[in-house]
Design a protein around this nucleic acid. Sequence first.
DNA 1: ATTAAAATGTGATATGTATCACATTCCTAA
DNA 2: TTAGGAATGTGATACATATCACATTTTAAT
Lengths: 224, 224
Amino acid sequence: MDICKHCQSKSLAANKLVESEIEELEHSCVSVDFLQGEIIFKQDALSSNIIYIRTGLVKVHIKGPDRDQILKIAKGPTYLGIPTTLGDKVNNYSATSLTHVSVCFVDIRTFRHFIENNSEFAYEIILDLCKEELSYYHRCVNQLQKHSAGRVADALLFFADEIYLSKTFNLPLSRSELGDLTGNSRESVSRILAEFNQQQIIQLKGRGIAIINHSLLKEIGKKG
Amino acid sequence: MDICKHCQSKSLAANKLVESEIEELEHSCVSVDFLQGEIIFKQDALSSNIIYIRTGLVKVHIKGPDRDQILKIAKGPTYLGIPTTLGDKVNNYSATSLTHVSVCFVDIRTFRHFIENNSEFAYEIILDLCKEELSYYHRCVNQLQKHSAGRVADALLFFADEIYLSKTFNLPLSRSELGDLTGNSRESVSRILAEFNQQQIIQLKGRGIAIINHSLLKEIGKKG
DNA sequence: ATTAAAATGTGATATGTATCACATTCCTAA
DNA sequence: TTAGGAATGTGATACATATCACATTTTAAT
């Protein structure tokens, strides 16, 4: 079928694979589509495949002592959950689709095989892991030290600048999920968004958001 | 000198190196000792070496919007800062010795060379990165969702169970640093420790700590 | 030994944010 | 079209924890 060979959303690592490896990949890779709100993989279940998000938006979330914590919003094309698949026998967190999502499940043995036989592939995976970890450090420190409004501001900027690349977008999360992402209660999120709306920093209509004063939002995000 | 060949604290990855690679390592590896409180590498400086802690305790910390955040306490033997060295040109965080520390600086080109030529080495590094990331996820969620006392309890248990392997130990951190680690103010840390002492959960004398009621401390850590 | 500087302890107060309670709006299914 | 449930908005209140202010202790330097 040449699915992988001509895949439009190949990863940097997959680009390092040679012809024969691409062929191997095609035989041990399954493409699955998810509707919005479906569980792609679940915390505590056995982890047996490397997940590659071709298109769509996914939330990665983990059970906290109190409530669900959204670790990140991932946008295809990207690998998802390499750490939880290679680093442990069971998933340390869950992934749920936020939009229609197209996913490739790659057999872990094949993936491992690539790492062991193609050092360029391995190096790209290592770089990816490193960058992920660095960005997570920054995210986490921001979460820990900023005040609620700053965290919500950051989240809005993240969606505008990194996910939708537009000042106008529809939030793919409920208020409650936005709380799980930013470490706020549902009510606080509501209040903060209402406040931003009031101050003409954003224009709010349900989940529809238009960022009006981008620089001020950035200021709020920076100050905490 | 055969420094590396007979090194007592070789990493899992380094154990996969063949004779000739070990030799290469010896030529591009410098061993340096640090006293307590010295900076091993500094945030925003150019990152040009992979750091391997042979012995000693190190704090990894990052500048937050508000104050310093201690990302983790690392204990040799362990790699330190692979993400910040491979993932970016400059260090994304700092490392400071908490005790006498013996460090190997490995030239990044040599390290990269190993990854590219020794797939078992690469795989061990990948596993290490994955496990680091997973443990960081859990740490971070705990930090975000637990209450102050729970976070301090966790920190004490961490030192007892994972660093010193003893119920009695001397904290390698000031109250203020313990605050940076647990996301509390210096004053709150003082109060919480005093409270634990009062309730006979720990016995406190300056930085000297004896854990008396381990299970209750664990309970506090779990509940938040 | 003496003194200065740093680290720590502790009460009073301020503040940010969760929680509770309930009203309102939105969405879906019959 | 209506009914019922889910999602959301909003005020009042409670609570955890930072901050401020200052006392006390410890540590290091002379």
